[in-house]
Design a protein around this nucleic acid. Structure first.
Lengths: 347, 347
DNA sequence: TTGTAGGCGTTATCAT
DNA sequence: ATGATAACGCCTACAA
């Protein structure tokens, strides 16, 4: 009927003079097979250049050693660093990683989910797309027995799922306190889309810190962006800094926006940090190298990536009989004070 | 024997009242199946929540829609941007992408190659690990019928393979000419490991440009690094700038080293670009945002990524009867002059 | 310790 | 246009 393609266990069985079951067991180091036989079988396999077909194994055992990673875009600092760690940790645990960029599109996230389900992967590690506001596709995956771990961008609407996050509210609160502590008192905020929980939390933290400090919360000083790109940052900085009543500090919900804000401010002759303090979420590799260097908030991408894989594999290997208890793990962040908010000390 | 797991075509066949052959054909939109039947079958499939098992398809057809990507590290500008495009293009062409970070280890590259071969993937797009200096594992993949495309870091020892590169020699030559044109005449060079062809070529281009311009080629001004990290860049800058006979410009084989060189120089009171010109290979997202901004050489990661996938898929789909002609494609680079080499005009 | 045979979920060949 | 059935390559329950 169909032509066989490469060397398979039947060939090895013939070469070694055993049955295919013995060959299969020998190659998988089954305890029941004698050492001698194993040696013979493995020698035969080597002689023929046998490479076991993982597809067939997967079909037969109904499990795979592949993890799907859903992520918006790879070419941003935090995410590329996260995926770097994810892949590295997965490799160490014997898993491969399929990368699925959603480009922040809900549609594409769903399409990819179907592909991943069809591929019968072992589990999914996902950072929600910015656009995503319904979650049936995640339920679908879980119904099919695919384990899911959510990282960074999560939603309380997705139940029974391990989540690995930072405390966005608290972090924004403390970041704001840092600015206030540096003597800035008219503080603007550049937010991402608040339908994403983490942006809503950050905004709340910011507002709360102002309230606690008794500082004004000027609605004109709060702006929203869908993607917080460099260009968007510039556009919004322009808008904010052209108001009659200008702020003397800007807190941005990511670091790219902070950098473009600084660049724009300097361009129009506003001194940073003297006239304008700037702080941004998400440490980027270049935050420290800028002039002035940029005060930012480090998210522990390495720890998040490691934990995500470990928790996922833990759940994959969990006894199906026992009920697995899902955790929401909150990791520490670190405020890294740099020149861009350093109004107190002379540089 | 074993328990079946999810809804399969047998279930759909029963639900729809057809045989599994008809169901399979209907779901694949085979021309022989009547429109009515297709509608019925698809409705049945939807009713049962059927999701075709890609593993089984793959086993049966002996082909998969997965591309393996071998890359040293994801968290560097050029590579994360390349992989970003690779994934995006692959998605558009109906392929998924498995990411394999080698961490520049030859050993790990070989291990991954075995995994990829076992997974019976359709093809591989690879950027050689810095350590790699033998290539049997690539031959092995090709023997197994897996198509390979090499990007950026290639080797002439790997034959019959599509290669997508830049002209490293010419680019370094022109970069050096740019520095010379800015009035620098004592130029140092920071190289990567020259057993990698691209670093050897860049060094040759640098040397040739000096020769043509009649400038001295001081062996003390040429340094080598295995990984060109930020730390390495600092270490080497320190070494070069502490010589009695100091250069007045430094050309680094990547951009991270350029940035750390600038940072170190400024730290010890050397003005950039007035006292020291700095230029680096590989544009990074932060090259433009630095103070001073960094003159660098943009490698067309987007075009490289697109082409790599297109050529790979082209070869995968090529008629096995015809012989496929492999190309080496050389893409243009772009020198982006910025402040770090701008000695002529006042800023 | 080793062998036999059935099953995983498809696709493809050969009939009808 | 549709159906029956043998592959694809491996694993594993059961038998010996």
């Amino acid at each position: 009927m169909k032509k066989k393609t490469r060397v398979n266990i039947y060939d090895v069985a013939e070469e070694a003079g055993f049955s295919i079951s013995t060959v299969s067991r020998a190659l998988n180091d089954d305890a029941r097979i004698s050492a001698k036989t194993k040696v013979k079988v493995k020698a035969a396999a080597r002689r023929l250049g046998f490479q076991k077909n993982a597809i067939a194994t997967s079909l037969s055992t109904n499990q795979s050693k592949v993890i799907g990673v859903l992520v918006s875009e790879l070419n941003r600092g935090f995410l590329s660093s996260l995926v770097h760690t994810l892949e590295d940790t997965a490799f160490a645990m014997g898993y491969s990683v399929i990368i699925c960029q959603t480009n922040n599109s809900h549609e594409r996230e769903k399409t990819y989910m179907d592909t991943l389900i069809a591929s019968r992967i072992a589990g999914i590690i996902a950072t929600l797309s910015l656009e995503t506001d319904s979650y049936e596709h995640f339920e679908k995956a879980k119904e099919q027995g695919i384990k899911v771990v959510l990282v960074d961008r999560v939603s309380p609407k997705i139940k029974s799922t391990t989540k690995i996050v930072i405390d966005d509210y608290q972090t924004a609160f403390e970041g704001t306190q840092h600015i206030i502590g540096q003597g800035y008192d008219k503080i603007a905020y550049v937010s991402g889309p608040t339908k994403q929980l983490l942006y809503a939390d950050r905004l709340r933290g910011f507002e709360q810190a102002l309230k606690v400090a008794g500082l004004p919360l000027n609605p004109e000083w709060i702006e929203y962006s869908d993607d917080l790109s460099y260009e968007e940052g510039t556009r919004i900085a322009k808008k904010i800094l052209s108001r009659k009543d200008k702020p003397n500090a800007i807190f941005t919900a990511n670091n790219l926006a902070a950098i473009s804000t600084i660049a724009y401010a300097r361009q129009i002759g506003i001194r940073v940090p003297e006239d304008l303090g700037v702080i941004g979420f998400s440490e980027e590799p270049f935050s420290a190298f800028m002039q002035p260097s940029v005060t930012s908030i480090r998210q522990p991408s390495t720890e998040m990536g490691k934990l995500a894989v470990q928790k996922l594999v833990e759940e994959i290997n969990a006894d199906p009989g026992e009920s697995y208890i899902h955790q929401k793990i909150i990791l520490d962040t670190e405020l890294i004070p740099r020149e861009s908010t350093n109004r107190l000390c002379k540089r």
